[in-house]
């Protein structure tokens, strides 16, 4: 007998979400098959040592346009246990809202001093930290004038953890109309970076973004 789990929501004003979101509720995994279902992602250390500082393409080079920011936080499972040695892959648009990605056809300005992709690994207490340029918002649906608010993409993988999410910024004008934010409802608060002072750092703004990997991943190991 099929048992059902969550019904995934479709992001309003998001055509792609309409085309790609499964319409049937998700099925529950029979408990005897659970262990042979959930991946364990091996730790992968493929980053270059300077990738934590995305404000410049390489050490000693000029900074990209816009506001340099620091983002830091702790990666934990739902029980509060820190997840160490996890790979965090980060990507965000430049100050003008453009990605250095071959499929970004927005025509917005590239910044010769901004790459927009970086990788860091969590330390033994689950902490991570990176610098980047505060991303620009971009017009995702020119036909209806709908913007994507400023956001930074983060992919977390390692051991039992697997999560792709986005960090948003407080009090941004486009937050309320964003289809992803609408799907998150009240939980959207959890995906907003919390500002902190960075007076003694070489960045202008700081955002704390603690990440909790939930569900299936909470108890796997350690």
């Amino acid at each position: 007998m099929t048992q059902f789990g969550r019904q995934l929501g479709i992001g309003p004003t998001d055509n792609t979400s309409d085309q790609r979101t499964p319409r049937k509720p998700l099925r529950l995994i029979p408990s005897v098959a659970r262990e042979s279902f959930v991946p364990v992602v091996p730790a992968r250390y493929v980053m270059r040592t300077h990738e934590w500082d995305m404000t410049r393409i390489a050490p000693g080079r000029p900074r990209g346009d816009g506001t340099p920011i620091e983002v830091k936080g702790t990666l934990r499972n739902e029980n509060g246990t820190p997840i160490r040695d996890a790979l965090i892959e980060i990507w965000n648009a430049n100050h003008h809202g453009r990605y250095r990605h071959v499929e970004d056809a927005s025509g917005l300005q590239l910044d010769e001093n901004f790459f927009g992709m970086g990788r860091v690994v969590t330390d033994e207490d689950g902490n991570y930290c990176f610098w980047t340029i505060s991303p620009g918002a971009y017009l995702a649906r020119p036909d209806i004038g709908r913007w994507r608010p400023k956001h930074i993409h983060l992919s977390v993988s390692g051991g039992s953890a697997r999560l792709i999410t986005q960090m948003y910024f407080p009090d941004e004008p486009n937050n309320a109309s964003d289809p992803m934010a609408i799907l998150m409802g009240d939980g959207f608060e959890n995906n907003i970076g919390k500002p902190y002072e960075t007076s003694d750092l070489d960045v202008d703004e700081g955002y704390r973004f603690d990440i909790v990997v939930g569900g299936r991943n909470a108890t796997f190991f350690e």
Binding site: G11, T16, S17, R76, N77, E78, N79, G80, E89, W91, Y99, H101, V102, E103, D104, M117, R119, H153, S155, L163, I164, T165, Q166, M180, M184, G187, F188, N190, N191, D210, I211, V212, V213, G214, G215, A218
Partner: peptide
């Protein structure tokens, strides 16, 4: 940050779309 429903579990960060621009660089 803690969940209501009488549980001590932290609230999980929402999953979000990867968007169209997942870096090919990470391949």
């Amino acid at each position: 940050m803690t969940q209501d429903n009488g549980s001590n579990l932290l609230k999980a960060t929402n999953e979000d779309t990867s968007g169209p621009f997942f870096p090919i660089y990470f391949q």
